[in-house]
Design a protein around this nucleic acid. Structure first.
Lengths: 210, 210
DNA sequence: TCTCCATGTGTACAGTTGTTCACAATATGT
DNA sequence: ACATATTGTGAACAACTGTACACATGGAGA
């Protein structure tokens, strides 16, 4: 296959991606990063960059792919740990916050890419979010918590949920991860957002005709 | 006062801000703009930049101020035109979309600044959103549409509304403003988001204790 | 009217950028 | 074990960057 890797499978490649991510994590904006800057951070000579990426946009796209893995891991953990329905939202939010803190740079990158980056990166992130939305819809359907909603309305609900959580990401990244008080604030607010949305979903049919 | 202006009150200053905004409107990210680039676009010599701004971050902050004016104008129009409660949300969303199309570059800048920009710009935009949220809460209170909610819950609801609309901004900016079909899609989806939220708000008390 | 000061210009410079090219090292397939 | 394709290196380049300085200009307050 075209997938047989180089001698050490993408060691420098990883170093470059990690370096870019690290710069983003330090507050730099991905759009303002240059090739030389990234290679410098990675401890690599600038020319080597081109062995792995065509340009910075290319690197961005590959970062989105890795971001996808992070998101999937998060989803898996949520599926495994969120069992009883009553704590569903609070726990999901807690898991989300934990993953954000564990992969801060990745989520920085995601938040930045959502608005304004190279159109390709933007579309990829949006696509990841759509995937997340549809998986969430599947889960909810399976848990039989929303049987009165048709597919379209369920999808809308999940879309709104994912968006709200994604927006909370902005809050979360704006505060220090050590400021447990503020983190708790974000957790609570996000949880209440979700509760509000689901209260709306529970009573949605009754006003659908209006 | 310290406000007595230069001979022509901030003509070049405006040219620089407009130039930066125009570049952002063309797809560039604000964080990646340079002084020379902006002055070139404005038809000004690079050195002149320093007569008006200390650096690009400074210019960004002043752009946020102008953005505030745009938002206030939008709010005023909404207040004047949204009269009957039944069309409230659809009409508000329509007004929002119209303003975005009329000031595309400004909203591009806002969407970019929400995540990642200089911390000061980010905080300013967030502050604008908070202001918007509290004004919305005041209006709803005055219209007596949400009398069963206490202040805290009303504020949460409005917060979620503003966030949802702000996220729709991302959708809106991702499509061509001429693609009326897609714009209509965004309008409809956003409206349904708001309806879902308000259905939730209407039934909120009943589950508050849970 | 004269003077001052905010504003705009031109030149200059050292540092950085993206990218090319020829070359060195090395793991892989045979 | 050898040839080859893949990966890393160093030097080089022209283009661009932010910023400093000395200077021109013209409106406002006296």
């Amino acid at each position: 296959m075209a997938d047989k890797q180089r001698r050490k499978p993408g060691e420098t490649r990883d170093k470059l991606m990690t370096a870019a991510l690290s710069l983003v994590g330090k507050g730099r904006h991905f759009a303002s990063l240059g090739i030389r800057e990234v290679t410098r951070e990675a401890g690599i000579v600038p020319t080597s960059f081109y062995r792995h990426f065509r340009n910075m946009d290319d690197l961005g796209l590959q970062l989105v792919d890795e971001l996808g893995l992070v998101l999937r891991k998060m989803m898996r953990e949520a599926r495994a740990n969120v069992l009883q329905a009553d704590k569903l939202m609070a726990e999901s939010v807690a898991i989300f916050v934990r993953h954000v803190e564990a992969n801060r740079s990745f989520f920085f990158f995601m938040a930045q890419g959502l608005a304004g980056e190279s159109h390709a990166v933007q579309e990829s992130i949006r696509s990841e979010m759509r995937f997340f939305t549809s998986e969430l819809a599947n889960d909810l359907r399976r848990m039989r918590l929303v049987e009165h909603l048709n597919d379209r309305d369920l999808d809308m609900t999940c879309d709104l949920v994912v968006r709200s959580v994604a927006f909370s990401l902005t809050d979360l990244l704006g505060i220090s991860p050590d400021d447990e008080y503020q983190v708790e604030q974000v957790r609570n607010r996000t949880t209440r957002f979700l509760q509000l949305i689901f209260v709306g979903a529970a009573h949605w049919r009754s006003v659908e005709g209006s």
